[in-house]
């Protein structure tokens, strides 16, 4: 039987162990993933992107998300890529969609998983080299089954 003192001394280690078990992205890994999406010298600006996702999600296993970007979608000025990133899923990346002037409209819809309440960011890469983004907070009551 370990003494109370020994248990207390081991508590921080146990806490760290339990914290690392469900793999989780952090705001830092999300920043890295976004930096990889932007490439060299890309700067992120807010606006032109709209995320349509329920602010309160009951079931994180399948969450409908729609992303629309304001763009004329002409050969001269169109959206090339749309990326979605999360802060606290096991991995920050969600989807990268490749579009072109033949898309007609810059709008995609899919269904994603959310491991917990967190911030989601959608980024649009334009043909002129600019990047636009929107982020939104989502509250999840039942998380996606990361832990079985």
């Amino acid at each position: 039987m370990p003494s109370r003192r020994a248990m207390l001394a081991a508590a921080p280690a146990l806490l760290a162990l339990s914290a690392t078990r469900p793999a989780s992205a952090t705001p830092a890994t999300m920043r890295d993933a976004i930096a990889a999406f932007l490439g060299e010298g890309g700067t992120l600006r807010e606006g032109r992107v709209a995320i349509d996702i329920p602010p309160l999600v009951e079931n994180g296993n399948t969450v409908p998300i729609a992303i629309t970007v304001e763009s004329p979608m002409t050969p001269q000025d169109h959206v090339q890529r749309i990326g979605v990133f999360t802060e606290r899923n096991p991995l920050p990346q969600v989807i990268v969609a490749h579009l072109g002037p033949r898309a007609g409209r810059a709008a995609i819809t899919t269904r994603m998983r959310l491991a917990t309440s967190q911030r989601i960011i959608a980024i649009a890469a334009m043909s002129d080299g600019s990047f636009w983004s929107e982020s939104t907070e989502v509250v999840v009551t039942l998380a996606a089954c990361v832990e079985g």
Binding site: N89, L91, V94, I95, V96, I108, T110, R113
Partner: peptide, 16 residues
């Protein structure tokens, strides 16, 4: 589109 594990089972995509 490149999909990652954060896409729900039975992946659904709508586009134009």
């Amino acid at each position: 589109a490149e999909l990652h594990p954060a896409i729900a089972a039975n992946p659904y995509l709508a586009f134009t």
